[in-house]
Design a protein around this nucleic acid. Sequence first.
DNA 1: CTGAACAATGCAATCGATTGCATAAAATTT
DNA 2: AAATTTTATGCAATCGATTGCATTGTTCAG
Lengths: 345, 345
Amino acid sequence: MKPKKRTTIYDIAEKLNLTASSVSRALNNSSNVNEDTKKLILKTAAEMNYKRNVLASNLRKGESKTIGVVVPRINQNFFSNVIAGIEEMTYAKNFNLIICQSNESHEKEIKCVNALINQHVDCIIISVAAEGNDYTHLKNVIDHGIQLIQFDRVVEDIDTLKIINDNELATLEAITHLITEGYKRIALLEGPQNLDIFKQRKTGYLKALAQHNLPIVEELIIENAWTKELGAEATRKLLSLPEPPDAIFASTSDFSALGVLEVATSMNFKVPGELGILGYANEPFTELTSPSITTIDQFTHHMGKTIATLYFQETQTKDTTIVPRTISIKPKLIIRASTSKSQVI
Amino acid sequence: MKPKKRTTIYDIAEKLNLTASSVSRALNNSSNVNEDTKKLILKTAAEMNYKRNVLASNLRKGESKTIGVVVPRINQNFFSNVIAGIEEMTYAKNFNLIICQSNESHEKEIKCVNALINQHVDCIIISVAAEGNDYTHLKNVIDHGIQLIQFDRVVEDIDTLKIINDNELATLEAITHLITEGYKRIALLEGPQNLDIFKQRKTGYLKALAQHNLPIVEELIIENAWTKELGAEATRKLLSLPEPPDAIFASTSDFSALGVLEVATSMNFKVPGELGILGYANEPFTELTSPSITTIDQFTHHMGKTIATLYFQETQTKDTTIVPRTISIKPKLIIRASTSKSQVI
DNA sequence: CTGAACAATGCAATCGATTGCATAAAATTT
DNA sequence: AAATTTTATGCAATCGATTGCATTGTTCAG
């Protein structure tokens, strides 16, 4: 019941009439320990239920074998899958993972990052919050000699390893698909443009239209429609236009696309016949709506694994900083019923 | 670029011609430091970009301000929401969260728990993996003087604070609802019976039938049908019986219920007219299927907050161990189309 | 003006593990 | 058998922050 004193290497040493040095060496399987003594030490350690105090060990060695992750929300499908991927790798390498969520608040993000610096983590993996444009806290990470890796929502100015989806290419492909299916007035629901990912998606959209000689219609581009509610609201406006769009690309998320679908249905627009709907992220539910929603898969789990793998590859070999560069994973267009005009059911 | 040496309290002390003691006291806002000196120290610390080394601090103080969480899968809605709830509280208390996933593997669970013990976490919050029946690793946690809290999937024998859903009551209510709607041959898809949560759901099911004088039909109770695929397979069998059920309760998860729905639709059973379907967990998609699925909400986020709140309440006041007891949160039946026979659309 | 009370600071040990260097003992070479 | 190398172990410092006790300086009551 009382906070029992835990066994230390000194306890083991005392019991065996040795010094802590030898015990430590034995436990670390170091050379220069007699085979028999080593066995004896390991056996006694097990008997005494010894567990190494990682704090002390890390303090001495100046490392922490810990990686910090900061994401807007842990319970969002995209992020929890990336984290699951990261965890898989870090676990294999005996690293710990400390998870923080910024809740899309810039202020909390800063606090989380600072807490992780305090913890002396070896690396911080971050996807930044939507708000905020001052990123000195990230520079601070680098100044403290901590590896910084950005993914998905990255800050262009901060020079680090970045793992992103090729949003532009994916969007280009998606819009081209819409055009091929015969849609001509394609609306765009865009996300906060201070985040590159949303900028890139917009660029892809514009490029696709240009490539197919379609005009860019300002009234079909709606700012900041990145929740289900905002998506719904935007759709209400769009479909009430004198010349409504014949397709809507919810570039921000499938949730937004879901809002679109619900409004379209309630306003008696036939999907995909009169209105095509395209989402982003391949949330599990997109398969289940009726009609199912065409969307873009981001290989989230794989992304997490890639991030962690890169970290270990680059730091295990040379002990220099990771070379800053951007690695792009090409997402995949998942074509479903909501855009399949040619084969209406 | 090089692993810069980080500022320590000694650096600050040297610069100000003081000792580390005073610096430490100032930073901890302790009494017995001159107001002016304190201000000066804090100012200099900020200028020198000082960050406390939490490892050293925790080592000295014998605490870690860290809580470890072990769950089967972080990217499962239920768990990621509970974790989000826990995180909210721990963040407020300046605690760190270390997350591990057991991947439903008993072996990995043991490794995770041991890693957390090594880390000297203050508390381990766990929901055990489906496999396994030896729980010495959990006893070990307690033996090391670490608080252990179990939630959802708890091990009865291990005496700790347990936070669970009142599965039996929720199921009783759910089945009663089915009966009220006029269903009479209700099948049960059950989960691994070594987990209490699934046992309780079965008990609730049996009680409800008994209360309404309905017979228990063995062939309508299917073991281990807890994925979408297994749910689908079980449904195929059930609906091919000479006397098929008129309702199926997928007690394991909504995913299982989804499998049921898909098979029922493909076999041309009308839902809810000819077959009622009831799931468990209130996954977001249950709202989106057609028909939408009646299910049971477990207040996941709230559950996470409750767990963390209890931990802090009990340890902050007295420094004894938390009183082992079971706290039950009553889940809520969410009635949707898949069981609303009386008002078929 | 002296002694007591108090404020502010320093000293040194401590938390537990690691590691370079020293030393003793054993094994090997000549 | 003496000289040298190798092996096993101990000693003591270190990582950075904290804290009980000691010391110095200051203030105030009598």
